[in-house]
Design a protein around this nucleic acid. Structure first.
Length: 423
RNA sequence: AGAGGGGUGUCCGAGUGGUUUAAGGAGCACGCUUGGAAAGCGUGUGUAGGUCUCAAGCUUACCGAGGGUUCGAAUCCCUUCCCCUCUACCA
């Protein structure tokens, strides 16, 4: 969430940024917000000055009563009783004005970083770099949805039976490959200083709000019926929310956390060839890295996180590219996002496997995540990224590494899997 | 899940309607003291909002959260969350 003081002080920048993110009528909205805030302030002042009078009178009544001056006290009492109505009325009006302002403020996305390219759709994302080369595929190369059947390692039919579409069952070497990847990704993160967290995978409403899933995107999350808890769409939510309502000691920054969780996404309304097989699931595993920084170091951290993710892809020897997302394709809360895409040899297209973002103070403002610099409390910057999401990595590994002997496991994973081929 | 007890500042802890502008202690910071340190003494010590050119000052809210009663609420009432003890259940 953007802050009102920032918007007031930088209304032109705000309007430009919102426009880059394709918010319609940015200029009007900013004007409205400032007007609402003015109204809020004025009502609050009225309420507070009435309260001040009333507080003073109440105190006076107290001392009059103690000194036995009953009649004087009674007079005062009548006087302040009359104020009650005004106070309540003004307080309620101020609260209503604030709510109106917040309701609007909460709908505004974060402002994009200056390096974010203009553009509306994924086609306008900027390719930052491409690593590796196209895998050499055999003539009769099969897409992963055929390979998983051929080797009987991932079973969608069984998943359909016990849950529904998009909930595959991993079996045998398929299950072991999952476990190998999870451990590999966690170990790599721990090696470079991340602290491992195993969070709950159900979250409450406050947490959903803190990282920006609520109030807008509840349709994308599963909810429990009795408690109204949400199944997490990503470990970002519980791990970042660990720091909700926290003033972090400056010395503890930067914070670097990593966690593995299953992730749940309803993805209502998406079907078609592009979502076949492992390309899009309702439940999948992901290793998430989260960092919390002082503002001046956050962009350096973003680059470091991007390099970490790229390192993983390089170790798995996957042909990949890095995109800098354009204003229209970026997430709601992000100021700058890099997407990593791996080449899928049999589908002949790029698959998104990671998204690394700097949210600057956008999440921190909702979370009330602050630190103190020179005695003043300031909002922290939050960042996160997938390192990595499993299903599409598995899809690419299966497709790109298929051969006459079966599917070859990358060297680096063999100690984790305990086998060299799926056959 | 049932019964009972409890949630107060960075921490411990007093406080059941009016000098509580939250006692007292610990911690922390600064100062005095000292050859240096400890002890001792003194001063300060939260968050958010408003006012203000800045600072200071003034002011409002915050004793788990939300609402209510009252001229006045940490204190009384209602709702709710969390913790502890016992019982029940359970991996």
């Amino acid at each position: 969430m953007l802050t009102i003081p920032f918007i007031r002080a930088n209304s032109e920048i705000t309007i430009q940024g919102l426009t880059k993110k394709h918010v319609a009528n940015a200029s009007e909205i900013v004007g409205q917000l400032i007007a609402m805030d003015d109204q809020r302030k004025s009502l609050l002042q009225q309420a507070e000055s009435a309260l001040e009078t009333s507080n003073a009178a109440a105190k006076e009544i107290g001392s009059l009563m103690q000194s036995g001056q009953k009649e004087l006290a009674e007079g005062k009492r009548a006087e302040t009783a009359a104020l009650k109505g005004t106070i309540k009325e003004k307080e309620e009006a101020a609260k209503a004005a604030e709510k109106q302002m917040l309701d609007l403020l909460v709908t505004l996305p974060n402002l994009p970083h200056s390096s974010v390219p203009e553009g509306k759709t994924a086609e306008e994302n900027e390719v930052v770099l491409t690593w590796g080369s196209l895998p050499k595929m055999q003539a009769d190369a099969q897409p992963h949805w055929d390979l998983i059947k051929k080797y009987d390692i991932i079973d969608f039919d069984l998943g359909n039976k016990i849950t529904g579409a998009g909930f595959p069952v991993y079996k045998g070497k398929g299950a072991r490959l999952q476990r190998a990847l999870i451990n590999f990704f966690l170990d790599e993160a721990i090696k470079v200083g991340y602290y491992e967290i195993q969070p709950p995978i159900l979250i409450n409403e406050d947490s959903g709000f803190g990282t920006g899933q609520l109030p807008d995107k509840e349709g994308q999350m599963y909810v429990t019926k009795e408690e109204g808890l949400f199944l997490i769409p990503t470990a970002e939510v519980p791990i970042t929310n660990l720091y909700r309502d926290v003033i972090v000691n400056e010395k503890e920054l930067p914070i670097k956390n990593v966690g593995h969780t299953p992730c749940f996404r309803r993805e209502a309304g998406s079907w078609g060839a592009h979502v076949r097989g492992l390309n899009r699931l309702h439940q999948f595993d992901k290793i998430e890295i989260v960092q919390i920084h002082k503002p001046e170091t956050s962009y350096q951290a973003l680059e470091e996180m991007s390099l970490h993710v790229q390192g993983l892809l390089q170790k798995l020897d996957l042909h990949y590219r890095v995109l800098r997302l354009c204003g229209g394709d970026m997430g709601f809360a992000s100021a700058l996002t890099y997407d990593m895409e791996v080449w899928s040899g049999a589908q002949n297209r790029w698959l998104e496997v990671s998204s690394v973002s700097n949210f600057e103070t956008f999440q921190a403002n909702r979370l009330k995540l602050r630190t103190k610099v020179d005695g003043k409390s300031i909002l922290c910057h939050t960042l996160n990224g997938s390192a990595l999401a499993l299903p599409r990595i598995v899809a690419a590994l299966l497709e790109n590494n298929q051969g006459p002997d079966g599917i070859k496991i990358p060297e680096i994973l063999v100690p984790y899997t305990g086998f060299t081929h799926i056959n």
